[in-house]
Simulated assay, not measured.
Amino acid sequence: MRGKAGYWGVVSHVGEYSCTLQIWDGDYTVKIEHLKSLELLDEDCFFMQQLCVRLRQLHQVATRDSSVDWLLQGLGKQAKPYLSSLQAKLLAAVEREYKIEWRQQKSWCS
């Protein structure tokens, strides 16, 4: 995808030739052959799905500071199924700043 190289996302719909990919800043339709699987374990898959939800919630804050976009972009390119201690603290601090309550959801993985 133009301008989205290196970003990870969550596949929300698979069609015959394309799929819908949820990235922190929106939904995109892409050809299946343009995707690369991260080949995650179920629990890692669940973590990434939850992280995507959290990043999307922050992106929806219209009054967010531009420094939040730096965090979103950085975490949006980090395809590791975990956050470092500092990353987790930064994300939680920004969520608190914008009064976003984070509640872990049930697993979406099978």
Rank of each mutant, 00 (worst) to 15 (best):
R2F: 10
K4N: 02
K4L: 12
A5K: 08
A5I: 13
G6H: 01
G6E: 03
G6Y: 00
Y7R: 03
W8F: 11
W8C: 00
W8N: 01
V11K: 03
V11R: 06
S12V: 14
H13R: 15
G15S: 06
Y17A: 12
S18T: 15
T20L: 15
L21V: 03
I23H: 00
I23S: 00
D25C: 05
D25W: 01
D27H: 09
D27A: 15
Y28W: 15
Y28M: 11
Y28N: 05
Y28L: 14
Y28C: 03
T29D: 07
V30R: 05
K31C: 05
K31H: 06
E33M: 06
L35K: 02
K36Q: 11
K36E: 12
S37Q: 09
E39R: 15
E39L: 08
E39K: 14
L40V: 06
L40D: 02
L41C: 03
D44R: 05
C45L: 09
F46H: 13
M48N: 08
Q49H: 12
Q49P: 00
Q50Y: 01
C52A: 04
C52G: 02
V53N: 02
V53I: 08
R54K: 10
L58M: 13
V61D: 04
A62Q: 13
A62Y: 07
A62D: 13
T63S: 15
R64V: 11
S66M: 08
S67Y: 10
D69T: 12
D69P: 03
L71G: 02
L72S: 10
L72M: 09
Q73G: 15
G74R: 12
L75T: 01
L75E: 01
G76L: 05
K77T: 09
K77Y: 02
A79S: 13
A79D: 13
K80S: 11
K80P: 01
Y82W: 12
S85L: 13
L86W: 09
Q87N: 11
L90D: 09
L90N: 14
A92I: 08
A92Q: 11
A92D: 13
A93V: 05
V94L: 04
E95L: 10
E95C: 08
E95F: 02
E95V: 02
R96C: 12
R96A: 15
R96L: 10
I100S: 01
E101R: 11
E101I: 06
R103I: 09
R103G: 04
Q104G: 01
Q104K: 12
Q105M: 06
S107M: 06
S107A: 11
W108Y: 09
C109R: 09
S110A: 13
